[in-house]
Design a protein around this nucleic acid. Structure first.
Lengths: 266, 266
DNA sequence: ACATGCTGTCTGAAATATCAGACAATAACG
DNA sequence: CGTTATTGTCTGATATTTCAGACAGCATGT
């Protein structure tokens, strides 16, 4: 953050930054919002402009429109902006419009209340894993993870389940090679990952211990849609030293609830 | 307006629908999202076009862009669209970026769990009242109200608190005259409303019984910001026939928690 | 059978939104 | 003190996007 702007420019997916190109306002808006989501903190207009590769004058124009609509709002007095109240309302409308999602959220609440552990709802976004919603542990040992942040699929237990419908070949094509490398430098052998995926499919759940970080034990169970496909998973994020007896209790609960949320294969 | 779909065209605030006018894509997007929020259900592209007063061809163009960005998504197979997953992520980012809001949400969760009643976080949007977030009662008697729907201020207990900083004159100018009329046809005398506002300010809480509808008892307590102003309120929505003893318990809890969420006047 | 209403996709043309760049203010730094 | 970066606002030109309307396809109703 200390430096000027180096490293701010994260390459835009699918967008050729060919200079002298003119872009549509709507596309700029989309890029802007996604950049803000990735950045996960209020940004200044100048930095946004760099991040989305737009001229400053254009960026000001757009930001002011979005501010007026409360889709963005000013944070602090130094010209920082972040998502605004309208986004919250739109997002709420999204997550409550369908009965299935509402049931899922209720279950999330209930499980968090009953167990006091961190519970997450997870899914895929493109070829990455994201947390769709979560309830953080109430205890002092809080492993908070951000909703919407993209994470390589092989780092996660849920990811193993979410690829269950793919053949080994498809998985190989789907996962970017770099995604097998863990944050601490270790590399997961693709073959090992493929067999994990197969195991997860067969067991109907998936667990990882100290994978993406050294402190967590993750367990995931599938939520199936009307066609039996796995779109989402329910998971617990536990301290890695959780006793085996409690872990198996929680795993049983997780599987039961996830099954309860699955739609009967019509 | 003469055409078939009468009633669909809700007049756009601050937008002159002068024909033959050209509008910016960004503005169309904003109108579209707000229209969808007001409508509270998936819509077809043709109806959206009518609602925001845009040509169909333009609307298709915009909707397709937003679909691709997952800001909208298809619902069902009949061409209906509604908010998409990206909106949920943006909204989540909004509501968790600031520590105060996070504390409020935790309190909301806790109160709902402890009491089993419907708890809401409320605020103003322009000169209307809206629910910003809520936890619905777990009981069979469920009074669900939608986050983000605009409601006339005089219909609500929270509204009386949220106007606490205004003089009688200011309140009079602020509330649209039609907003004193309740859904069942009764009309609140403005003078009575002003004194309610004064009473709420003095008491530090506000209650309404069977006001906006015949079945609910609402109680609201103020959450003050760093300057002592009331931006948001915490409230319970109870069945009207809740026993007086329980009501006063809940009111005490409400006031205590709201005070706990208020920021010390710096 | 026809008439009517809708959807979703294209087209060309005209209006304008995006752009590069200039500008004054302010801040940080040696 | 000058030098170098900022921010936020304006400007005018042109490349682009919005728009009206036509089109085929598929319903529905009479």
């Amino acid at each position: 953050m200390s430096d000027s702007a180096t490293g701010l420019i994260e390459t835009e997916a699918g967008a050729e930054p060919r200079n002298g190109e003119r872009r549509r306002g709507i596309d700029r808006v989309i890029m802007l919002l996604e950049a803000l989501l990735r950045h996960r903190a209020p940004m200044r207009v100048g930095d946004i402009a760099k991040m989305i590769g737009a001229p400053r004058s254009t960026t000001y124009e757009i930001v002011n429109s979005l501010l007026e609509a409360e889709m963005l709002e000013n944070v602090g007095t130094e010209g920082y902006v972040y998502f605004g109240r309208a986004m919250h309302l739109f997002g709420w409308a999204y997550s409550h419009h369908n009965a299935h999602y509402r049931r899922i959220i209720e279950t999330l609440d209930k499980m968090a209340a009953e167990t006091g552990e961190t519970v997450q709802l997870c899914g895929l976004r493109g070829n990455k894993y994201i947390v769709l919603d979560c309830r953080d542990s109430s205890g002092p040992f809080r492993i908070s993870s951000d909703v919407g942040v993209e994470v390589p699929i092989p780092w996660t237990a849920s990811g193993r389940l979410l690829l269950g419908h793919m053949s080994e070949e498809e998985v190989k094509d789907f996962i970017p090679p770099g995604d097998y490398k863990l944050p601490d430098g270790r590399v997961i052998a693709p073959a090992e990952f493929f067999s994990d995926v197969a195991l997860a499919r067969q067991q109907g759940f998936s667990e990882t211990a100290a994978l993406a970080d050294r402190f967590t034990w993750c367990m995931a169970a599938p939520i199936r849609d009307g066609h039996g496909a796995i779109n989402k998973t329910l998971c617990f994020v536990l301290p890695v030293d959780t006793a085996e007896t409690r872990r198996s209790e929680l795993l049983a609960l997780l599987c039961e609830r996830a099954r309860g949320l699955s739609l009967a294969g019509s």
